[in-house]
Nucleic acid binder design. Structure first.
Lengths: 163, 163
DNA sequence: TACGGGTTGTTCAAATTCGAATCATCGACT
DNA sequence: AGTCGATGATTCGAATTTGAACAACCCGTA
């Protein structure tokens, strides 16, 4: 790992690009979603997970872990979605404490309506701006970065660099 | 550009990786900063910009544009920093409406204290996880992505549906 | 000089986020 | 069964973000 204490030209460019892209892309998509579907990005993500899940239902905690929000944040957002009738709560039969978030028909419909536009936006601002090579390495590299931080130590690769 | 309407395997991986990495990295660094320096990431970024600027001062609006926050958000954060004595406000001599945010000596000191740890964290979670090639393409690709969204139309190329 | 459109920064209310505290329950172990 | 530590989800308050509304001001132009 290069020189401690500072970043060289290229490292700086990568970091800056990453930071800027994160913010701008996030912002842009937030707008796009809210404008086109009246959904916030967190809400959209919740619907997507539920849409992919078998029976369209997932336990709250599991949902919170797959997303980035805190548990309380999820409680809030699911509450919002419930108000709009896009999601329903169902208590878990085998564990009284447990709660499933369930995608309603209406929720599935709204998700279906929102998805194409969102995907198009993602393509427009990110995917189509990158070439094959970049896309490939982005997926690989950032995937690794994300995995590192989620498991915190999934031992994926024994890279000794202790910290 | 592949098939409209959806993302193929690799595109999906790139998008997902990007999204996850953005969130996780952002979160992680937020924690690191707050823990080590008592600064939020937005606050740290304000200090950095001011630190790089000549005389350590920048006009509010310009600062808001370089960051991602709204004008009111900046007003709030600068207010917070002012409370801690890290930043001072100075009204612009040539424009009564104008306000400069100025880095104080204390602010410069705090920034100096915070920077090494933050850089180390950035290196740990992002830079050192990527290899040379990835770093190169990340800088280039994401730089392009960010530039696209900031200028909104830097004349790169006419953006018809046909990217 | 006076006009009018655009700028500058702040204030305000509403929405969202987080973390700590809370409450009830689960599960393993004695 | 009975106890104890961990877990699931919510509630609460504090901090933050945003957009709209606002007040004051700049400047080019007639």
């Amino acid at each position: 790992m290069s020189d401690a204490e500072w970043l060289d030209e290229r490292e700086m460019a990568a970091w800056h690009g990453f930071l800027q892209a994160s913010n701008r892309v996030g912002h842009h998509l937030e707008q796009q979603l809210k404008e086109d579907s009246g959904l916030s990005h967190p809400q959209y993500e919740i619907l997507v997970r539920l849409g992919d899940a078998p029976d369209g239902e997932i336990r709250m905690t599991e949902l919170a872990k797959s997303l980035i929000t805190s548990k309380s944040g999820l409680t809030y957002q699911v509450g919002q979605l419930e108000k709009r009738g896009l999601v329903r709560r169902r208590s878990c039969p085998t564990d009284v404490r447990g709660v499933f978030a369930v995608l309603t028909d209406e929720g599935r419909r709204v998700l279906g309506d929102a998805a194409p536009g969102h995907v198009a936006a993602v393509r427009e601002v990110l995917i189509d701006v990158l070439d094959e090579r970049e896309l490939e390495l982005l997926a690989e590299g950032l995937g690794r970065v994300a995995r590192r931080l989620s498991g915190e130590e999934d031992g994926a690769d024994r890279d000794e660099s202790r910290k």
